[in-house]
Amino acid sequence: MGAILSIAKTTIGEAIRRRVLLVILLVGVLFLVIAPGLSVLSLRQNYTVLTSFTLGVIQLTSAVIAIVLTVYLLPNEVERRTIYTILSKPVYRWHFLLGKYLGAVGALGMMMLLMSTVLVLVFRIMQQQASMDDVLQLATAPIFFFVQMSLLAAVAMFFSTFVSPIVNFFLSGGVYLVGTLFSPVFQDLSNNQTLPAAVKGAATVIHSIVPNFAQYNIQGGIINQGPELRSIELYYVQIVVYALFYIAAFLIAGMMIFDRKEV
């Protein structure tokens, strides 16, 4: 456990020193700061524009950070040959992989925390009539974006055990797109009673394998302040449990590949 935590800590330190990540983060924060200017342009829907834009910025920036951060973690260690130093010590490969993943998630969490703080500050300044409940509700979205990005980081970590960073960037991005767009479609298909059994079965299998990123996009209810959400606590617990299952699955698969990989 000590080895895992040490690797994670080192990874966080490395991540926050990487300029490319800091630039992405800076761009994200800048967009958050200028967001009120954008919402002022739309007097008719000030609240909606402010929240949709700021939450969108956080999600988009976090997704880019999650992928860029994770795709280089293993290949850089191999390329710089620092992995030999680590693996020559009493550290299992799975320790190394898990430590790297936890470090990536930790760094991602810190960056998202910074953006969320800016988000809340901007919201408080611009929406002074908003209650504490409104602020808390707004802050819920970044929490589940973090869960979503942790899952995305696990996907990228899995691919990084056998593909190059560039390929991994597009693969992980593609899985994110497919998981956001097609998960509901495949779920609909697998629930459709009129379809042939083979099609339904295929849809169920695909839906079970491709992680469902769509369910973390909970911002719609916050932005539009629509109807009362049903069993929302249960929903939140379930999507966290789902993420834990899939993160574990991707990490185990990654460990199995990395274990046999020649470095």
Binding site: P184, S208, A214, G221, R230, Q238, V241, F245
Partner: peptide, 21 residues
């Protein structure tokens, strides 16, 4: 893990559809 995730996903779908779709 995959089976567990798939089960949770199926359980969650009606709530997602009602609340966020």
């Amino acid at each position: 893990c995959i089976a567990g995730g798939a089960i949770v996903n199926r359980m969650n779908y009606p709530l997602w559809q009602e609340n966020f779709s």
